[in-house]
């Protein structure tokens, strides 16, 4: 498989997608009602002070000129200042994105491991009591939103049984590890602080489970049905007839093609988690990018809105490219099609 040209082509397309996204979100952020400068300074700030901020943010210029100036600043690595935190958006993203990345990382592990395992076992024991339990659990998981799971988990494991911490990224008073990646679990390991790692990890468990349950349930359902479809194919029956061990049939010949659909769905779900994690982050007092994103949107913090959406855009595109590569690896037809093209 010639991955290089494939990835390069996708990257080139991605630049255009990001460019289009930047125009769209830049315009939307600015044309929705409400004066960002007035909202930032409060209703009682004098007109001249509001006007000074509007000029500083170039809000007094035509939209096209504003976009040009913004693009120029972005080219110089500057996303502007946030009206909410009153510091560079770049700094905010650098601080909040690793927190969400860490949370979504663990969520992704739960989704992939839990979703595929449950799906495979369910398919293997199709129409047994175990399969029925998993199906019931999956339906419950799909129809219950992540924030509801967050509340349920917090009540059970924080309020009734105080097993897990329920607020923030670390226990109060604990000094965070020296910043390397911004992800506390990784940084504490890199600093050799296993106590900190455990503390940070425990803070991630409940929000990650809450976020993982709906997409994990969906992944389990899709994996199961995909496995069930492939199970009935002649090639699988032939292999079983030739005496190929069940373990090999399931692991190598059945699972691999069955994973194409679940992986695509899981990847999109994981990417979407960056955006919709805001309720869970808020409930658990987790200072991540999703919570920040909602706050800046409610405050019409134009620079921060564009910054957050662009980051999420990059995440979506990256995950899509990764999924394409994985799918191409799993399905030879896609690889060959790519070569012919």
């Amino acid at each position: 498989m010639r991955l290089g040209p494939f990835v390069l082509r996708r990257l080139a397309i991605s630049i255009f997608v990001l460019f289009g996204l930047s125009i769209l979100i830049f315009l939307i952020a600015r044309i929705v009602p409400g004066d960002p400068a007035r909202m930032a300074l409060g209703p009682r700030a004098p007109v001249d002070v509001v006007e000074r901020l509007r000029q500083q943010m170039h809000l007094d210029r035509p939209l096209l000129e504003q976009y040009g100036l913004w693009l120029w600043e972005v080219a110089h690595g500057n996303l502007g200042d946030s009206l909410v935190t009153r510091r560079p958006v770049k700094q905010d993203i650098r601080e909040f994105f690793p927190a969400t990345l860490e949370l979504v990382g663990l969520t992704a592990i739960f989704i992939i491991v839990g979703g595929i395992s449950l799906g495979v076992i369910s398919a293997r024991y199709a129409n047994t009591w175990f399969d029925n339990v998993v199906r019931l659990f999956s339906y419950l998981g799909i129809v219950t939103p992540a924030f509801a799971w967050a509340v349920i988990l917090m009540l059970l494991f924080g309020f009734v049984w105080h097993i897990f911490p329920t607020y923030g990224r670390l226990t109060e008073g604990v000094i965070p590890p020296v910043t390397i990646t911004g992800m506390y679990t990784i940084d504490s390991l890199l600093n050799g602080r296993f106590d900190l790692f455990w503390d940070a990890f425990m803070h991630l468990i409940l929000p990650a489970i809450a976020l993982a349950l709906p997409p994990m349930s969906q992944a389990a359902r899709i994996t199961r049905s995909s496995m069930a479809d492939n199970q009935n194919k002649d090639c699988i029956a032939s292999m079983i007839a030739y005496g190929v061990p069940n373990r090999v049939v399931t692991g190598k010949y059945l699972l691999k093609p069955s994973l194409i659909s679940p992986i695509t769905v899981m990847a999109l779900d994981i990417a979407a988690t960056f955006g919709y994690a805001f309720m869970v982050e808020k409930i658990f007092g987790f200072p991540g990018l999703a919570r920040y994103g909602i706050q800046v949107m409610l405050n019409k913090d134009v620079n921060a809105i564009v910054g957050v959406v662009m980051v999420l855009g990059v995440v979506f595109i990256t995950l899509n490219i990764v999924v394409d590569i994985i799918v191409a690896y799993l399905d030879p037809r896609i690889r060959l099609l790519g070569r012919n093209v």
Binding site: M154, G158, F159, T166, Y167, I283
Partner: peptide, 20 residues
């Protein structure tokens, strides 16, 4: 003293119960 972002009603109840 510590002042922090409003986490939501359930979190507040949980934290009050746990003296946090």
């Amino acid at each position: 003293f510590k002042e922090f972002a409003f986490p939501g009603e359930v979190a507040i109840r949980t934290m009050m119960k746990n003296q946090e």
